[in-house]
């Protein structure tokens, strides 16, 4: 049950983020939308790795044969994904700053002169 909730919340976040990305014209807000999407994705990943009533996947004395622990791989994945998401977001922000300083505007439709 909790898995469904987490994953649903994650999916909802992705959609909210996407909505933000598609509707907000300000570069920074778009990036925020992207971040929300990212976060939602991370939630989905973690959620899918979760086993109800299981412990953390850490090999220590509390682990006995037969103990359930959550799938460690999604946790590992999400760490990587967070790092990458961070990098991309940072880069996006850097671009946004550069774009703003070049044009004095942070609206996405002001940056479409290389079409056609």
């Amino acid at each position: 049950m909790i898995i469904q909730i987490i994953v649903s919340v994650g999916a909802l976040l992705v959609l909210i983020g996407l909505w933000g990305l598609l509707t907000r014209r300000n570069l920074i807000k778009m990036i925020i939308g992207f971040s929300i999407m990212d976060t939602g994705t991370h939630l989905i990943i973690v959620g899918l790795g979760y086993r109800e009533g299981a412990t953390a996947p850490i090999l220590d004395s509390s682990i006995t044969p037969g103990t359930h622990f959550v799938d460690p791989i999604p946790s590992a994945l999400v760490l990587t994904a967070i790092v990458i998401g961070l990098a991309v977001t940072a880069l996006m922000l850097a671009y946004a700053v550069r774009l703003y300083s070049s044009r004095g505007s942070a609206l996405i439709e002001d940056f479409k002169e290389n079409a056609l």
């Binding site: 992705v14 996407l18 570069l27 999407m37 880069l91 946004a96 550069r98 774009l99």
Partner: peptide, 17 residues
């Protein structure tokens, strides 16, 4: 090219998600 890069990032971001 910054503009282009930003657009690329949005697309790449969606794709990676």
């Amino acid at each position: 090219s910054l503009q282009a890069g930003f657009k690329y990032m949005i697309a790449g971001g969606i794709s990676s998600i």
